[in-house]
Nucleic acid binder design. Structure first.
Length: 765
DNA sequence: TTAGGGTTAG
């Protein structure tokens, strides 16, 4: 006897065709197939004696049918299990249909076991009703057992099984069953095609779906059936063949809301959200009324595009049609608001939802991350745990929030939670864990996670590669890339962004050119704006400013602000005011309200001693309202993330923080550290003002030093780039206090240790 | 005399 299946049991291999009709190969009774938690509860002895003393009507089968027709499931089940004789086939069928309609798992399985025990289910109608119910309840395995035992099967039985296996994601098995059906000489009907096509889209050999199914449907005269065409569209959608989907759609004589929705969601899922909205507009023009699923699909397209105006109209429409109580619509709506940078509106929708599922919570957590409100993401994550069980998508979003704030302890807790749930290798979770460890400055943990990840993909390699680059291990990054290629992993655009970045940080010009050319010549990857920006950065940082400028002018695509910004940064490092001003002209044309680029130009003037121009630039910033410093740093202490703003005096421990900074200043003076570069033109020594400049990273570092154990590293995350003065001071602090200080800023990761930084001071001319 | 097609989050 095979072991009783459990919920996680793999799909049983299909028996050889011949065994279907061989009594010797029949599986044990259905009751024995049920997993322990699925076994029906027997009636207690008290209930049995009560049943024995109950007077039944003359026709229990009629009574059972009547109870089912009135929806009285509990009483019907009781009657079934109390009667001495099994009811007739009609009564069983009525009970199975009621269980199917109610999605009543346990009563359904009990009724199945009852029929099975009494060998009363051999009729075709009864078997079919059983199959239909089991498939609808998601009990494909049990459906298979019933199907295998049925002495007679019709096209309905086969359709239910083929469709059921497809729904359960067992696509190969579904297609196998379809072929067996054909071999068995069963003639497919109009229902067969949608059942099979569901699985054709998910298997590599899609030609079977297109050629065999389509041809057969045409031959049988089903090609005009709306459900068949919709299934065909869906098959092409899942194969990413939107052209063919469009052809089927345009040739349809009649289309219903499902046809339109399949096209809308198809375009959205295949990366054409704009086309999805075009189809939606066309649907309106054709006066086809959208239903809840259409609206959810169109909202998903709006979310992709950040298209608020159409999204708001869909919101109004959903309200007018009374769809707001549908969780799918509400979820799609809050996602749309979050992605359109209206997170407060998303919160409003979320709070109005009478019921929230794992998608609602995960969307909110990811939405907060998308809107740079990572603390709220973590707050929602903690609250969710009391309400809904998180899944891999939730954990990925929460890990992103930890990564963004450098919340290592929080990230580790989530890692432990993931392992406890046994989903550590599910979906993108392994890569999200690598990313979290990388961004929290823990390359060692990231590496361990990378090595433990059994199914590495290009994203795993890229994430780890980016980790080496961020930590200043340029040589390791290049050898890691070689290892990646040797293992057969094909690099993509992201890989080359990381590699060129490594070259730029390490001043490896020749390697950079070689990699840049290899993109097109070896890997057929067309360089994008990010790659060009990296190359400009590489050339500019090493002082090849004219080459960088010429390189920009020869670009086959129009340079963006990042490309010109890289040149501006190079000009700042090498104090080339004229070329810097030219780069700044382009940058500020493209990004006129970006405070960061204005600051970069100010720094260029300050470093070059052009105080008149600096004053004018600062005035321009004031006039534009860009002079407000919104610098913010975070540090995690004992699992709690503390945030500090520039000149922040609000923290309860601010006096201790200042005392620590003052102490450091005294020790700097005593140890003769006086050669810090200052922005002040007259003073070239470290002054008290330098120490108390109010920059958020210093406050966060001081707070971390106070509140963590001696000898342990302090890890800080900052939303802007670390200024030259802070960089110099932090190097000194790491030396004085003999602690590792890790600062991840908006540009790179700095690991300060014994008075030096892993960035090699590149970028701090 | 039952059944098939479009569904939100990374």
């Amino acid at each position: 006897m095979p072991p009783p299946p459990t919920k996680s049991a793999p799909n049983p291999p299909l028996l050889p065709l011949a065994s279907f009709h061989s009594p010797r190969a029949l599986p044990p009774t259905l009751l024995h197939c049920l997993s322990p938690e699925k076994r029906p509860r027997r009636l207690s002895s008290a209930a049995l004696s009560a049943a024995a003393s109950t007077s039944f009507s003359a026709d229990p089968s009629a009574e059972l049918r009547a109870l089912c027709s009135h929806g009285q499931l509990a009483q019907a089940l009781w009657l079934l299990e109390s009667s001495a004789e099994p009811p007739d086939e009609d009564a069983y069928v009525a009970l199975f249909r009621l269980c199917e309609w109610r999605r009543a798992m346990e009563p359904g399985l009990r009724a199945c076991a009852h029929a099975d025990d009494r060998h009363a289910w051999f009729g075709l109608r009864l078997g079919n009703a059983m199959l239909s119910m089991l498939v609808r309840l998601g009990e494909t395995w049990h459906a298979w057992r019933v199907f295998a035992k049925m002495p007679e099967r019709d096209v309905f039985s086969w359709n239910v099984m083929v469709g059921g296996y497809g729904k359960a994601g067992l696509l190969e098995e579904a297609l196998d069953l379809y072929h067996r059906m054909m071999w068995a000489g069963v003639r497919p009907d109009v229902y067969t095609f949608p059942c099979v096509l569901r699985s054709c889209g998910g298997v590599p050999d899609w030609r079977m779906g297109r050629e065999e199914m389509h041809g057969l449907a045409v031959k049988r005269g089903f090609a005009t059936d709306v459900a068949f065409c919709n299934s065909l569209i869906q098959m092409y959608v899942s194969l990413g063949m939107m052209g063919q989907a469009r052809t089927v759609f345009s040739r349809m004589d009649a289309r219903d809301a499902m046809s339109w929705t399949a096209m809308i969601s198809g375009y959205e899922k295949n990366g054409f959200p704009d086309k999805a909205l075009e189809v939606y507009a066309l649907m309106e023009v054709n006066n086809v009324s959208p239903d809840d699923i259409t609206i959810a699909s169109a909202l998903a397209a709006c979310a992709c595009l950040g298209c608020l105006d159409v999204g708001v109209k869909l919101h109004e429409l959903a309200e007018s049609k009374g769809f707001m109580s549908y969780i799918v619509v509400a979820n799609a709506l809050l996602e749309m608001y979050a992605k359109s940078k209206h997170i407060d509106k998303a919160i409003e929708v979320f709070k109005c939802m009478p019921e929230k599922d794992v998608v609602s919570w995960s969307s909110m957590i990811a939405g907060f991350c998308f809107n740079h409100r990572n603390f709220e993401a973590l707050y929602y994550f903690r609250h969710m745990l009391a309400d809904v069980k998180p899944n891999s998508v939730t954990f990925i979003a929460a890990l992103a929030a930890c990564a963004a704030t450098g919340a290592l302890r929080g990230g580790k807790e989530i890692h432990a939670h993931v392992l406890r749930c046994g989903i550590g290798s599910e979906g993108y979770l392994p890569n999200a864990l690598i990313d979290m460890y990388v961004k929290c400055g823990q390359t060692g943990y990231a590496w361990a996670q990378f090595c433990a990840h059994g199914a590495k993909d290009v994203v795993s390699w890229n994430t780890m590669l980016a980790g080496f680059v961020a930590h200043g291990h340029g040589d390791t990054a290049l050898s890691f890339f070689n290892q990646m290629v040797k293992t057969g992993e094909c690099p993509d655009e992201v890989t080359f962004v990381a590699l060129l970045c490594a070259c730029s940080r390490g001043g490896m010009v020749n390697e950079g050119w070689e990699l840049f050319y290899s993109m097109t010549e070896t890997y057929s990857i067309v360089p994008n704006l990010k790659h060009y920006a990296c190359m400009v950065d590489l050339l500019s940082r090493v002082g090849q400013l004219t080459e960088a400028y010429n390189f920009i002018n020869e670009m086959p695509i129009t340079p963006d602000a990042a490309v010109w910004g890289a040149l501006l940064n190079g000009c700042r490092i090498h104090r080339h005011v004229e070329l810097g001003e030219l780069a700044a002209k382009y940058v500020l044309e493209l990004e006129p309200n970006d405070a960061g680029y204005h600051v970069l130009l100010c720094d260029l003037y300050a470093d070059a001693g052009r105080w008149d121009k600096l004053a004018r630039m600062r005035k321009t910033m004031r006039d534009k309202g860009l002079d407000h410093d919104s610098g913010c740093s975070w540090v995690e202490v004992k699992g709690v993330v503390h945030a500090f703003l520039t000149d922040d005096e609000s923290h309860p421990q601010i006096r201790e923080i200042k005392t620590v900074l003052e102490g450091i200043y005294e020790r700097m003076k005593a140890s003769g550290c006086a050669a810090v570069e200052s922005h002040s033109p007259e003073d070239k020594e470290v002054s008290k003002d330098d120490i108390f400049c109010g920059h958020s990273e210093r406050l966060a570092v001081a707070f971390g030093l106070i509140n963590t154990a001696p000898g342990t590293p302090v890890s800080v995350t900052k939303n802007q780039y670390t200024c030259q003065s802070c960089h110099g001071i932090l190097k000194m602090i790491s030396n004085i206090v003999r602690r590792d200080i890790i600062v991840r800023d908006s540009k790179q990761l700095h690991h300060f240790k014994d008075g030096s930084c892993t960035c090699g001071d590149k970028g701090y001319g």
